[in-house]
Design a protein around this nucleic acid. Structure first.
Lengths: 218, 218
DNA sequence: GAATTTATTGACTCGTGGGTCAATGTATTC
DNA sequence: GAATACATTGACCCACGAGTCAATAAATTC
């Protein structure tokens, strides 16, 4: 990785801070001043790198999403069977680093603004489509008919949305394990109690764990 | 219905307007001026009846929720079997009058504020608990074990959340029928393909339809 | 090391929105 | 019909946050 210009470093720094502030304080509470304070810089400095608040937040969300996507890709690359791919997707969606109430709150804040900001709308669509198509692809490869795969993907993505919502609202203080348990229960009914699926699950779970532990150390 | 004081009328009027403005313009876009305009009154008049904006919006949300609850109760009173109760809950949650993108957007706006407003938090908890306990009660009465009922209720409520989310974000332009189809698919897998359940569904669907048609005329 | 570009910031402007207040209009009471 | 309570509003104030700008500090180029 080569040297980065100060401008690039700052942009990433401010965008990261913006997402953290957004997660904690919500859209209304995310002021330029707070983002600046959060990095130790001045408000004017933030505006030096982002022409306005709107663009700062859009960049912040895109960056946060890119981080998620990278985690997901890393996991997918380690999957060798369709079911492993499938659980790779799930693990990525409930990674301990991102599946936290504050982060969920950040995304819910975005969702609340989707109808008023075409860029958020766009980002939201991209995120949804990626999840959906990943799920459908993986499920089709397990030998399901396209219709079955479509139906399965719909149910799973609805559950994921519901779980993230509940995480953001801190209902029942649910954690990763609870989330998985809920989904797993449905999957058993939906797809049958295959041992192949279960072993895929344990494998991907272990891999995801290893990855996050790895990410912790430099 | 006896005469109502002007104060009561105005309060309801402004609260209703506030929820509509919230649904359309989101939390940020819901200004006292806009709520006032929406009713033809002045901003000062709104503040005459609500000491501040916060209380106005809280009242608006509580009132909107009360409307939903009344619809639900009316439907539940017409149910005579457990499965009919169950579908009464579902029908109430997807009533054509309330299951609309704008309304969903209004609720998502509230959810985004939950971490910053204890009153919203409270309301959200109440709503969730009511849904959950209604579902559990109905399912237990069908003869399930408490654990099964609990699990079923969890899955159904997660799906409902996910569907409302998607409705608010206008993903796939889903309508009542799609929403029901998604849930129904899962129910068939979860609870088996009972004819008893299906007839309960058609009955409650018809009743819900009749109720909403009835509500349309004075 | 002078010149020029780039980074950083404090001080400022400006618009907006929440909330107050006193004035005026309109019922209601006796 | 005077007095009293209530409804309604325009005008005003204030806080706050986005965005500008010019001045200064630091780094890069030649």
């Amino acid at each position: 990785m080569g040297r980065k210009s100060i401008a690039d470093i700052r942009r990433v720094e401010f965008a990261t801070a913006a997402f953290e502030v957004l997660s904690i304080h919500g859209m209304k509470g995310t002021t330029l001043q707070r983002v600046a304070d959060h990095t130790g810089a001045s408000k004017a400095s933030v505006l030096h790198y982002f022409s306005n608040k709107q663009i700062l937040i859009e960049t912040a969300l895109r960056q946060a999403n890119a981080t998620l996507r990278k985690e997901a890709v890393a996991l997918m690359n380690l999957a060798s069977t369709p079911w492993e791919k499938f659980y790779g997707i799930l693990e990525a969606n409930f990674s301990p680093t991102t599946f936290r109430p504050e982060v969920a709150h950040g995304w819910i804040s975005m969702c609340a603004e989707v109808p008023h900001n075409p860029q958020f709308q766009r980002l939201q669509t991209v995120i949804y489509r990626r999840l959906h198509s990943n799920l459908v692809t993986a499920l089709k490869e397990t030998g399901m008919t396209p219709a079955e795969a479509e139906r399965g993907a719909n149910v799973v993505s609805l559950l994921i949305d519901g779980i993230w919502m509940r995480c953001g609202l801190q209902i029942g203080g649910l954690n990763r394990e609870d989330a998985f348990a809920h989904i797993e229960g449905v999957l058993n009914n939906l797809f049958g109690d295959l041992t192949e699926r279960h072993s895929a699950k344990t494998k991907m779970s272990a891999l995801a764990n290893a990855l996050t532990l790895n990410a912790a150390k430099p």
